Simulated scan of single mutants.
Amino acid sequence: MSTTTTLVQRKPTPTQTQNDESKSAIERLSHGVTISGIPSFTSIEKKRHWMLEHMAGAFRVFARKGFAEGLAGHISLRDPEHADCFWTNPYGKHFGLIKVSDLILLNENGEPVGGATHLPANAAGFEIHSHLHKRYPHVNAACHTHSKYGKAYSAFGRRLEMINQDACDFYGDAHAVYPEFGGVVLSDEEGAKLAECLGPKGKALILQNHGLLTVGQTVDEATYLYTLMERSCEVQLLVDAAAEGSGKAKKFASDQACEFTFKAVSDPEALYCAFQPDYEMEKALTNGDFLD
C-alpha cells in the first residue's frame, strides 16, 4: 500500500515577509503557528478572576516544587482595577492548599479590603511587596520564598554567572544582590531598600542569607522566573563544586550571546508562556481544585 502526501502551498503572511526584528518575541520563538500569549478580556471582573486563578495555580506549582517552608513565602499581584491594592496569600496556609477563595486583597496601608478578609496576611510580606508595587508601576506581581537552593546560594552574596542558556534570563541589570540582611523584613525602611536594589530594569533579587525574589508584569512571569532562578542557583552550586573538585576552569557565555538570548527569551509575554506548561499540568493533576 502506498500513501501520497499533498503539500499545501501557503502564501507568506505579512509577518513572515518581514524581518525578525518586526516580530514579537513569542512570534520569533514559535515555529509555524504562534503559541497563544497573554489573553485580553471584555471586563475587569473576568480579567481579575483569570488573574486570581493563575495566582492560586502559582502557589500550587511552588508547593509541588518544594518551595514551601513553614510560615515563610508570599506572592503578590496588583489588582487590575485598584492599582494601589494587591492580592496575596493568607498567613499560615500551605501553598499546596491555597485556592482562589483564600486570597486576600490589601490596600496600600496593609488593610484587608477584599477576598478572604477574615484570614491574616504576612506582615513581612506586606513590607516587601508594597514597596515593589508602589515604586514600579510595571511590577504587577512579585514572588518570594525560602526555597532550598536559593537560600544556599544566597550565602555567597554574589550574582549568578552566565554559565548556561537559562541563566541568560537574568543577564545584566535583570538581577542583583541585596547584601544587607537584617533579619525578618518588618520595617518600612527595609522594604524600601529592597525595592531600590531591584532597580527599574530588575527582574530578580538574590537576598543575601535569605532567599530569592522575582517580579513580573504577570504572576505567570514572576512565578516562572522564580522557578528558573531557583534551578539556576542549584546548577550554579553544582558547577562551582565540580570546578573546585576537578580544578577545571568554567566556560562563560559571551556578552554578545547573553544579550542576544536575553532579548529573545526575557520578553514578558514569552515568560508568561513559559509558565503555562506548569500551570496546565497543575490543573490536570488537581482536577482544577485550586480554581474554587
Rank of each mutant, 00 (worst) to 15 (best):
P277F: 04
E244P: 04
N89Y: 09
H74C: 07
F170H: 04
Y153K: 02
K99G: 08
E196V: 05
M162Y: 07
K248W: 08
Y279N: 09
T145P: 08
A63R: 01
F156C: 04
S130V: 11
D102A: 05
K250Y: 04
S24D: 13
M229K: 07
Y171F: 15
S154D: 10
H94W: 14
H54R: 14
V177D: 12
K193M: 11
A270Q: 07
D278T: 11
R48Y: 08
Q9W: 12
K148Q: 14
L7D: 13
V33M: 12
Y91C: 06
A241V: 05
P179Y: 05
G183A: 04
K248M: 14
T17W: 01
E81A: 14
H118C: 02
I98L: 15
L238Q: 14
N107Y: 03
V239D: 01
P120L: 07
T214I: 08
M281H: 11
A176R: 14
A192L: 06
R10K: 13
N107M: 09
L228G: 14
A222T: 00
A253I: 13
D220Y: 02
S2G: 12
F67R: 02
G288M: 07
E280N: 12
H144T: 10
M229R: 06
S22V: 10
K201P: 03
L238M: 12
I38R: 12
A121H: 15
L186N: 05
A274C: 08
L132C: 05
E127I: 01
V113N: 04
Q256A: 14
I206A: 01
S36C: 11
K99T: 14
A243L: 05
A58H: 10
S24V: 10
Y279G: 09
L105M: 04
C233T: 00
E111N: 13
G182C: 13
L212W: 10
P14V: 01
P120K: 13
D173P: 12
E81V: 11
S76I: 04
F290M: 14
M1R: 12
R78L: 00
A68D: 15
R78V: 13
E221G: 05
V185D: 00
Q9P: 10
D220W: 02
T227Y: 11
P39Q: 00
A222L: 01
V177T: 00
K47I: 08
E244N: 12
I38T: 13
D267R: 09
D84M: 00
V139T: 10
Y153A: 01
P12I: 08
E189C: 01
A72D: 07
G202N: 10
K283G: 15
A25N: 03
Q256I: 09
Y178N: 03
R28A: 04
G172C: 07
G245E: 13
I163Y: 00
L29D: 09
G73A: 09
K23G: 01
P80K: 00
R158P: 05
K99P: 02
F41D: 06
P200L: 03
A152C: 07
A284T: 13
P200N: 06
P80E: 02
P12T: 03
Y171A: 08
L77W: 02
F126T: 00
E282M: 15
G247A: 09
D267A: 12
L97P: 00
P90N: 03
G199R: 01
A195C: 06
V219Q: 02
P277M: 11
G70L: 06
T223E: 10
A195S: 10
W50M: 00
A264F: 06
V265Y: 13
T34W: 07
L291F: 02
G247Y: 07
H138D: 14
L52T: 10
F170L: 03
